[in-house]
Simulated scan of single mutants.
Amino acid sequence: MTLSLSRPELILKLIVEQYLSDGQPVSSKALADNVQLAVSSATVRNTMMALEQQGLIRSPHTSAGRIPTTAGIRLFIDKMLQLQPLSGFWINELQRKITPQLPISLLCQQAGQLLTNLTGFVAIVSAPKAEGRIVRQIDLVRLASDRLLLVVIDEDGDILHRVLHCESAIDNSTLSKVLCLLNAALGGGGQWQDGIERLGTIVRSETGLCQQLLQKVLGQLSLDELQQHQPLIFGQHQLLLTPEYQQNPALQQVMEMLERPDGLIRLLQSLTLDDKPKLLLGKESGFIELANVSLIAQRYQSQPQRFIALLGPRRMNYARLIPLVEACARQLNLNLNRRQASP
């Protein structure tokens, strides 16, 4: 599709495209030499001056070159950006790595890790589990006289398995009693969190080795419940390697926000209320910590609401990355629907 642009729009488009490509200020001479313009350097300079007065470009220092502002990049994305089709390699990777056979937690992990691997940026996936998680099965398997394997399976097929090390040998009678109490607390298709609360009550009424074992199980169940309700974040180290991070200490605030992501998750939840891809540039997010980065986000499930997002420097290849995040969300949604439709 060919865009019909005015001269100022075309000049802005060329500035943004060059900046997104190499991060360098664009001079009027470089623009005047562009065959798409066919105008004099004076005309380009006058147009650039007008664009600067409109707040769409700015001079980063005393050089003659200009870079786009957030407003300039936003206008480019909203009016001039032409999205590119996914490469065959990316399509194959999405289909190969995000498959319906995987439990939901692993499906989300695969999607986030793949997005980071393909882009080199930070991927954020909403918590794999929603409230009301159901326990389908719980078991204790003897590995040795003083070691047990805890196995818990939830309704999505996700399996928790943890080795429990005990201070003394566990006789069969104690093992049978503990397993009976665990099934009383968590068995029968009850909710995970409710089961944890019931198990906590049971622990307080027991003594000795039986109580010790139940406390170990309670600790593992509580930790897993906490982890399952935390967002998945991949590729933080990738941000550390970007030239922008090396040159801009303000990006260190992003790392701190990723370590305590509650505010970021609320932002992404409010952003992904429909099935359209969303893009936030810098200060548009309302968070000073995100002033130097961009977020591409897409909802992939409405009930419960789940999203996937990509965070990186403002200088992203939006034409390629927006379709990638969309495709990743579609693949997740497709496979979640296949799982739900399976008998």
Results as ranks from 00 to 15, higher is better:
10 L>G: 11
13 K>G: 07
13 K>V: 03
13 K>F: 00
23 G>C: 01
33 D>R: 15
38 A>N: 11
41 S>Q: 15
43 T>G: 02
50 A>V: 10
59 S>L: 09
60 P>V: 11
61 H>R: 15
64 A>I: 07
77 I>K: 02
93 E>M: 10
95 Q>K: 12
96 R>N: 10
96 R>V: 04
99 T>S: 08
101 Q>F: 02
109 Q>W: 04
114 L>E: 01
127 A>Q: 12
130 A>F: 07
157 G>V: 11
164 L>P: 03
168 S>F: 01
169 A>Y: 06
171 D>E: 14
175 L>G: 08
177 K>S: 09
183 N>I: 13
186 L>Q: 05
199 L>I: 00
200 G>Y: 00
209 L>S: 07
211 Q>R: 14
212 Q>L: 13
212 Q>P: 00
214 L>R: 06
214 L>F: 07
215 Q>H: 00
219 G>M: 08
220 Q>L: 03
222 S>A: 13
225 E>F: 09
226 L>S: 08
229 H>P: 03
232 L>K: 04
235 G>Q: 05
242 T>C: 04
242 T>Q: 14
250 A>K: 10
250 A>P: 00
256 E>F: 06
256 E>Y: 14
266 R>T: 06
268 L>W: 05
277 P>Q: 07
297 A>W: 01
306 R>C: 13
312 G>C: 08
315 R>G: 01
322 I>P: 01
323 P>W: 00
323 P>S: 15
334 L>Y: 13
337 N>F: 05
337 N>H: 08
340 Q>R: 15
342 S>A: 15
